[in-house]
Design a protein around this nucleic acid. Structure first.
Lengths: 342, 342
DNA sequence: TATATTTGTCTAAACGTTTAGACAAGGAGG
DNA sequence: CCTCCTTGTCTAAACGTTTAGACAAATATA
């Protein structure tokens, strides 16, 4: 079968320790001639070290586990490539786990990664609740992107609240009053985007009791359409839709089209994430941007630093977000002018 | 540290063999009382078996390596979820490797997966040449999606040629003559999509010497725009663009818009893959569909079957493709009528 | 009753590495 | 010349599992 260190040792006429030393530039020195013989034997046999055995002994797998909710969501594909890039730089490998926004699947993967002794965890968009997350953070080397506050964890927090707040402020400043928020699945006890939006409206003295539109069974384009149709059926006078997600917002735009509403003339639609399709679609999507690729990079750097010096450097890194205004949102004022013109 | 089988054995007052037997419903039977004691000890300590040690002994990792060129390409995300789904069903895990369409990166990952002793390989959209692929197929349990013919391998082949042929036939039947093909990167010695398109034109007695438009440095939306602008600069009379990819086709549509050309009135654009955005975009994209999710499922089933009974069941599975006509393509005839109407 | 089989348990040897410690040889410094 | 350090090599013990084989007791078969 596959050649082992033993075979190489025999072939080169040295001890297996010596072979190991040359493979790893081992802790002990090796004479040039011995090294030569070993290298020859390795080349001749095409020997490849068994990573399993190596990891078993060294307690390091040079692997980081990456948990994300949805591989088809461009926000996360950007995130993933960021993680991969840094991992490659530092000679780590990435074991990607796609939880499908399913908490039990997520727990299953966390167990799996533990059994495989990954060196660390990068988590984003977890569907676990705060206490479960706390437990994960306590038992693993983990860096987590989450809106929860988790003591003693390496935590990145997207400023969801501010994102919602900026959307709210923007819409109100343009004269919108009948605003609805299309929530994703109720992942968290505290839906920060919604809360931020709510806060902005309150600040301007607007009521928020009818702010929440229909919620969705899963986060997808199709469900975005369904939830929007439902919402506009329940609240026909809506002039602005703020959506959990760009995918959802794209669905919302499609729903409006089907209902014969023009975007943005009749109704404004705003998303979240600024995925590539947001700027490509017609109308292009007003949205809240956060650079997921950069976040992935930063988080992975943090994790690798943590793995290096085990000092419990718990800290919280806030990530700012930015409202990007495009074609899908429009001043109510303009619309009113148009109506008056008739 | 983490509890081991030894700890459980001591705690339960049995031998480590017995512990192993209950964990695996082992090859030997275990009395109910012993099993009970072991299960208690496991529950009490939260013991998790070390997958590394286990795999080292059993020579199985219950893992399949998945190699794809681009995680951001929706064609492949569909493929990935298909693979994951079947893997989960059969209690396998997926180690996903994103090669970034970089052959050396791809070889690196293949080595990595070998060192980690994955049980099998699923490869799609490889950038390796036929001889390298042949080598991979010979040395691993692999199922490969590739246009090359690789003897003694489990091979799936997308009917790229027929896809190109269908596009060509369709365009010619609608009266198009000035057709250009926007190639992706020159991944393969034989660009089948191009060849199929060419064959269709030849069959109708059309010249094919000016069929090939500008090629791209990488497969992306942005490069699609660039290559299209270039192509339409070189061949201003072009009435139809057939593109390597839906991503590229979307770029082509955007390029046309920037050049003031209406799609499909002035020029037809056709993609390949039928990614979700193809039907969402305006104009919606005429394209060649193949269900990547289903392909992922079928290939993984094949691999798992192969892993079960090692008989070298080499075979070639062709995958049909289907032209989906949408808004982005249009009869020249209609356009001519319009012109005559003026 | 004597013998064969089944059932349950244990001991110990792998699997392919890494690495601490023993050891020998060769120089350097006194 | 003796001691001390460095250099290079080797032996052997881990790492945490699985499992073949030994063995004893209980049960079935003759």
């Amino acid at each position: 079968m596959k050649p082992t260190v033993k075979d190489i040792a025999k072939l080169a006429g040295v001890s297996i320790a010596t072979v190991s030393y040359v493979i790893n530039n081992g802790p002990k020195p090796v004479s040039v001639e011995a090294r030569g013989k070993v290298l020859d034997a390795i080349a001749k046999t095409g020997y490849q070290p068994n990573a399993l055995a190596r990891s078993l002994k060294t307690e390091r797998t040079q692997t980081i586990g990456l948990l994300i909710p949805d591989i088809a969501d461009p926000f996360f594909t950007g995130f993933i490539t960021g993680v991969e890039q840094v991992a490659r730089e530092w000679n780590y490998n990435v074991f990607l786990c796609n939880t499908g926004r399913n908490p039990s699947q997520e727990l299953h993967y966390i167990d799996l990664l533990a059994q495989r002794h990954v060196d660390g965890l990068v988590m984003a968009g977890s569907m676990l609740d705060a206490s479960a997350l706390k437990l994960v953070a306590a038992n693993h080397n983990a860096v987590i992107l989450s809106p929860y506050s988790i003591p003693d964890a390496l935590l990145y927090t997207l400023d969801d609240f501010d994102g919602g707040y900026q959307v709210g402020n923007y819409l109100v400043s343009k004269g919108h009053v009948a605003i609805r928020y299309i929530e994703g699945t109720w992942a968290h006890e505290i839906p920060h985007r919604y809360a931020g939006l709510q806060a902005a409206l309150k600040e301007h003295g607007l009521p928020t009791d009818e702010l929440l539109g229909a919620t969705m069974n899963e986060v997808s384009y199709e469900e975005g359409i369904r939830a929007t149709v439902q919402t506009l059926h329940d609240f026909p006078k809506t002039t602005a839709l703020s959506c959990y997600n760009d995918m959802v917002a794209l669905g919302a735009v499609e729903a409006c089209r089907r209902l014969g509403l023009r975007v943005p003339e009749d109704i404004s639609v705003i998303g979240f994430d600024d995925i590539p399709e947001a700027s490509r679609s017609r109308p292009s999507l007003t949205t809240v941007r956060s650079n997921s690729h950069e976040i992935g990079i930063a988080m992975t750097r943090s994790l690798i630093a943590l793995l290096g010096n085990k000092e419990a450097c718990s800290k919280v890194v806030p990530i700012p977000v930015e409202l990007i205004v495009r074609e899908s949102s429009c001043p109510v004022t303009a619309r009113f002018q148009k109506k008056e013109g008739i």
